[in-house]
Amino acid sequence: MGVSSKLGNLGIVTTTVEQAVNHARVGAMWPLLFGLACCAIEYMSSQASSYDLSRFGMELNRATPRQADLLIVSGRLTRKMAPVVRQLYDQMAEPKWVISMGDCASCGGVYNNYAIVQGVDEIIPVDVYVAGCPPRPEQLLHGILTLHEKVKGERIADWA
C-alpha cells in the first residue's frame, strides 16, 4: 500500500476529524438511482463501460432514497413530478447533496412553458449545476468532481 510504505511501521496518520470525515464522504458517495429524461441516458452512459463512474466510488446506485447521499436530478422537471422529487429529497438522510444535471433541470432549458418547473432550485437546494443539453458524461464527471471539491472543504460545524 502506498500510504504504509511512506509511514514505515508506525501505522499512525495525523489528520483532523473534518478531513477524515470529508475524505470518507467523498470516497463513497452513493447516488440515488433516479432518472427523469434524456439526461438520465447520459447518466447511464457515464456509469457504463466507457466512462465508468465507479472510479470515483460511485458504482453503487441506491434505489431507495434512505441509503443515498447524492440526488442527480437528470432531466426536465415537470409540475406533476415536482412534489415527488421534493419528497425523495426529504426522505434522503443527511448529509445529502444535489446535482442539477442539464439545462432543463438547471433553468428550464428550451422548455419555457406551462408544464416545466423553471429550474429545480425552485423546490430543492442545489449544490452543483451542470450545463448542457444533455451534458456529455465528461461534463457530469466534472460536475461530480466539483462537488467532491466542495465537500472536501465543508466544515462539520456547518452541518450542525
Partner: peptide, 16 residues
Amino acid sequence: FSFNVDEIHQHKPFAR
C-alpha cells in the same frame, strides 16, 4: 436581466 433579477430569484429560494 439586471433590473428584474431579484424578482426572479425570489421564486428560487433554494439556489445555493
